[in-house]
Design a protein around this nucleic acid. Structure first.
Lengths: 352, 352
DNA sequence: TTTAGCACTCCATGCAAGAGAGTGCCAAAA
DNA sequence: TTTTGGCACTCTCTTGCATGGAGTGCTAAA
């Protein structure tokens, strides 16, 4: 009776309810729902025939489909989307899940340790694959540089960045340098650049190179080159992530096609496609959900991805995600992803 | 006529030849061999019936078996073993394989880069999974230590080990230290320990602690702790490896059982079982081959592992391996593993 | 608008039959 | 004594067919 037929295909309450029940049942069972079962399950006191009519409508609108004529209905991507957008009642986390997260994401760990833990927790708690990108360091601040002579015209350069980050690299020089020469060069660079942003520091060194045409030029040029290499390396590092629990995905019937699995695993391994997906989430405000091929990647057909950026001081440092079959318990996974992101951010706050 | 029936089951030449042909054919085709096909393939000018008799003997001795009554014969683990031990004619590497290896294992790369490259090359060239353990550094020599003050009673310690290895760690101290205090402590430690083995250095610091009961005690205790942590960390690091090309294993029919694959992948991921296998090869002189469950690990059922240690200056630094189906081309893989190990050793020689 | 009834479709299962591949054994040939 | 041809037998794999179950769409009645 009461229906809100305002928009193009706005569904009345009963239709929505039936869709909701269908999606929930399919998520927990994995079997297509027939009209008879759905009628019972919905507790709506309607006959299977009525349900059939409703299903016909839903199918017409593209929210459900049937694998074949006599196999009941299954949600489509569009169906999942509507469910996720409008019908989700997210379940509160149980206390043991919360405490497990809190305990394992304690700030005493190293940055890498935290990333590993977060990824492992996502994987364990959801029985799917957990992904966490390595936090990028937005402001790369030159702090101190040291040079150590090695044999064979090589110099070990150690650059301390930000508050505690240390990068080191071997410089091949044109001749041997004495320790005092290296000390002199380091002192000079440190004085020149301490506290500067790495980009600024680099520019300064380059400017200075023109003025100071003395015996340490070689080394300084190398030092600048090191800065550049560090830059490119930290860029590469920033664009990396940790995956835990890929093998969990083998448990799901809908992914048991070996070809699909292979494609998925290779996507994880090659990191390219998957990274661009994660990168695109880095500016999102909170949880984002990609259902099936919504993400635009063919390998993710049949999979959904739930992502959340994690932030320190309101600055986004990375993204974490859970990857699993489309038929996943969104209501359970979403709060896990959410809390993990928050806790990871907090833990990193004490670290960076 | 001419048969050497000396040992318990010494096989005459024809029998051996038939086994060899069978194994080779099965390796390249993957299909059980019947007497008719084998008779032709062997080029022995014998009838299928004769071959059948021979096969019955081989089956009795346990070198071959049949999946079922009318399915031809397949080599057993014991059959592969005999083949590998006595009938292998290892194929010389083609020049493009050699050049690919030489080019990609050039000593300009970092240690980690080399390990990654080696693993990737093994995987690519064999279409199986390549594994390389991170080289352990036998002699850990204290070279230089630096302290940098951070905020909140934390100090960044940078320890340079061996020729170019840098480790850093945050020390939580009981109070704030000034830069000059830290410099003093560093100088002190450097003078005390420079060039020493890390174990010796640690003992020295501990000894010295008793004598020098002054204001820098805290820091020095922390420094010693750092040394210990570095030790345990480098131990952990040593016992790690890089796997590339796991997904290649999905291509092989005999491993397409999803349960087996999952077990295998999890073994790769958890690293425990697999490491003890690799560790056991570290003292072997050259190539070692484990067929099926010979290695003692159930997950490796249906798989063979070909390993070789790699050495620098006659000192073994690690192990590399190829993991694939039992039905792999040993003749092709062995020289690849062999050369990769040699080249990796050489490349590391210039690095460490 | 909802419901009951009915014809229809499709899948999964089980069964039977036949083809194909290969074996083991026996008796004859070399 | 060894090799060979022949033959019965076994096992798997495929195909075809019948059956039952599940579910749908449609129509007509409530």
């Amino acid at each position: 009776m009461v229906s809100n037929q305002d928009s193009n295909y706005s569904l009345n309450d009963r239709t929505q309810h039936l869709l909701k029940v269908l999606v929930e049942s399919y998520i927990s069972d994995g079997r297509p729902l027939g009209s008879r079962t759905l009628a019972k399950l919905s507790e709506l006191d309607v006959s299977p025939a009525t349900v059939r009519n409703v299903m016909a409508d839903l199918e017409e609108f593209g929210f459900v489909e049937s694998p074949h004529t006599s196999a009941g209905r299954v949600p489509t991507t569009k169906g999942y989307r509507l469910f996720v957008d409008t019908m989700l009642n997210v379940q509160p986390l149980t206390t043991d899940v919360v405490s497990q997260l809190v305990e394992n994401l304690n700030p005493k760990q190293s940055v890498n340790g935290l990333v590993e833990s977060a990824s492992g927790l996502l994987s364990d708690l959801t029985s799917m694959a957990g992904v966490v990108t390595i936090p990028k360091h937005e402001r790369a601040e030159f702090r101190q540089i040291e040079f150590l002579p090695l044999s064979d015209q090589r110099v070990l350069a150690i650059l301390v960045m930000n508050r505690q980050e240390v990068q080191n690299r071997i410089l091949h020089t044109d001749r041997e340098y004495s320790e005092s020469e290296l000390l002199q060069a380091a002192n000079y660079l440190n004085e020149l650049c301490a506290g500067q942003d790495l980009v600024v520091a680099r520019q300064r060194i380059l400017d200075e190179l023109d003025h100071v045409r003395e015996h340490m030029n070689d080394l300084m040029r190398s030092a600048v080159e090191m800065g550049e290499k560090l830059f490119s390396e930290s860029d590469a590092e920033k664009s990396d992530y940790v995956v835990v629990g890929q093998t969990n995905l083998m448990e799901y019937d809908e992914l048991s096609d070996i070809e699909k699995l292979k494609g998925l695993f290779e996507a994880f391994g090659q990191k390219r496609e998957f990274l661009s997906l994660l990168d695109s989430c880095i500016f999102a405000q909170g949880i984002q959900i990609f259902i099936g091929q919504e993400s635009g990647y063919k390998v993710l057909d049949g999979c959904s991805v739930i992502t959340s950026p994690y932030t320190v001081d309101k600055e986004t440092l990375g993204v974490l995600a859970v990857v699993g079959p489309t038929r996943m318990s969104y209501e359970r996974v979403i709060p896990i992803v959410d809390l993990t992101a928050k806790l990871l951010g907090e833990a990193l706050n004490n670290q960076i």
